[in-house]
Amino acid sequence: MNQREKEEYLHDYAIMKSQGKPFFPYAVAKDAVMACVVMAVIITLSLVFGDELGSKVNAATTSYDARPDWYFFFLFDILRIIRTPSIIQLATIGIPTLCMILLFLLPFYDRGPERRPERRPLATTAGIVTICLMAYLTYQGAHAGTPDALEFATPKAVIENGPAAVEKWNEGRLAIAQSGCEACHTIGDNGNPGPGPNLTHIASRLPETAIARTLVNPTQPMPSYKNLPAKKFNAIVDFLSQLK
């Protein structure tokens, strides 16, 4: 907007304002109705769904659900989509930061005098696309498997060893999924990018005994799993030692 457009706006706005109605009681009445609606919705939600309290914190847990509240699902899902290690920082921090900067500076790069949405095709389209994208990511974040599900194709070597080996492999897969490893490790397309290293090819780095040693006596912040039932523990070690 140049100086003339600014003054024109201020002038027209002053006229429209002088022809308007007083804030009290007209706008206040509408706001009050809306406030009642908001309170009614909150009270209804509280009465119908109540509050919930899961089980107590246990840092060396055997089952958990590392999910944020729903309004962070869209961020959560960016993490799920972008998995390439070299650009993971971009996904977790870069994209949200960039969006925030774009949002902050909006009035400084969109300075046209036009205010009608249908005459600001670029801004309106960008707004609608953003809304759809966030809705999509939120939906995906809500429906993608929780971090305690582990999807991983059974390796050929295991299949060749017969059904018993496959069953053991699946046991390990389940045990890992239930033990919260994915809060800190990536395995294939599952889990979080940090703080622990990617375990997708762990067996090519660590022999079976070393894996077992890590589980019993890990470096902080990884909790020790030496108290797991022996069957579960062995299944986990067995599973990991197949990940070449």
Binding site: G54, V57, T61, Y64, D65, A66, R67, D69, A183
Partner: peptide, 11 residues
């Protein structure tokens, strides 16, 4: 400070 809270925050 239940399980869900702790793990979501840690992550």
């Amino acid at each position: 400070f239940d399980q869900r809270a702790f793990w979501a925050t840690t992550v």
